[in-house]
Design a protein around this nucleic acid. Structure first.
Lengths: 209, 209
DNA sequence: CAGCTACCCATACGTAAGTATAGTATGTTA
DNA sequence: TAACATACTATACTTACGTATGGGTAGCTG
């Protein structure tokens, strides 16, 4: 049974079992798996693991708590996932400047789900988003996406090579990059100009002291 | 810790844990260990594993079924590091209310240094610190300290049992807990009254989307 | 269209299993 | 001798957690 031919969610469940088992050293419960996959109900997981059991990929003892395990030769697969949990801190972003890349590899230890999504972190320089509570010196975790929805905070690359963190709005024939600072004007980008969205900001981290 | 220097029965228990775990692929229960060692009562095993845990040879999560596992020197090191990386999210803090403890154990994965310092996390409810960029729904990481310096953001327990997150200032004969919200007044605590400082806020984490 | 798979949700019930509390007995060491 | 560690026993309580039962939607295929 090839994992890659599994339906998407079953594959997610299998990976989560491997991951949580290796992370904790004991088997996960259905509820823990549900939580890890953003579900509200462990019954969904139960149905998934029944399907996986029928495909010979997992096994458990009926009625025994925490006896769920992956069977076969799939245990090593979780090892390569491990290194992707950390979020690389790639540089500083200041409006009107290109991203100033850090020379040394640094990482932000945050919730592992961000690393798994391929997120990267940027250190904020400036006050352009201060009224949205994003302060100079904060770290923003960015999920790579080529597009964004209105109102999302994006890391945008302009045509002149500069980068900026702003709220994104798509308007008639143009894009608006809106600062959250009353002293600053929006940036408008004509619809025909090149606007690259590096990703959307999904989390913020700040040292207080 | 050398296994061979263990008392006889503790050594038996350790071996049985390893054996049953490898045999079944999931952790044994106390009852299963008791049965394997010819005992009638799982309490005996419980006392043995407590002794083994105190010697750093096994580990489990209190209250979780089948979470017992043997930890070796290498794993011990990893486990300690893992355990101390995670910051327990213990509840919600809203000014004027006691801390509303979360029922389910949750953790915030943040920079490992916070976990090492024994920090805990609280979810913010309210706007009392909004002008310092601490918003409703944010998570604040708190380092336990009984005292604070002027200007530090503290989790304070008042005499009436309520909790609050404010900037701490020591003044003549009293303490001032200063909100960062122009619509709110400071809280003054007479120097003779009981003011418990649970800790100081050292970091903030916010989900943006 | 019907049937099937995939995927999500809910509540209720019952057993699994850890823990609390308490006890006795034996061996070792200061 | 007393204190402590080791090792066994019991019952009762409480939470953990799997399962039963039931519902729904969406997409694909014959």
């Amino acid at each position: 049974m090839d994992i890659d031919s599994l339906p998407p969610r079953q594959k997610d469940v299998l990976k989560a079992i491997l991951h949580l088992t290796n992370k904790h050293g004991y088997a996960p419960t259905l509820a823990e798996l549900a939580k890890a996959l953003g579900l509200k109900n462990r019954m969904t997981i139960h149905q998934h693991v029944v399907a996986l059991k029928n495909k010979g990929l997992v096994k458990w003892e009926p009625g025994l708590n925490r006896s769920l395990r992956v069977i076969g030769d799939h245990e090593l697969e979780d090892m390569q996932e491990e290194e992707q949990t950390r979020v690389p801190l790639i540089g500083t972003i200041a409006a009107g400047r290109p991203i100033d890349a850090f020379e040394n590899k640094e990482y932000l230890d945050v919730d592992s789900s961000y690393g798994e999504k391929g997120c990267f972190a940027l250190k904020i320089k400036g006050d352009s988003m201060i009224e949205d509570g994003i302060y100079d010196g904060d770290f923003v975790i960015v999920k790579p996406t080529p597009t964004a929805s209105n109102g999302e905070i994006v890391v945008a690359l302009l045509q002149d090579g500069t980068a900026t963190l702003k709220r994104f709005y798509k308007e008639k024939g143009r894009y608006r990059l809106q600062p959250a600072n009353a002293d600053m004007e929006p940036i408008y980008v004509d619809g025909k100009q090149k606007l690259t969205i590096q990703g959307t900001a999904v989390a913020l981290f700040r040292k207080l002291s």
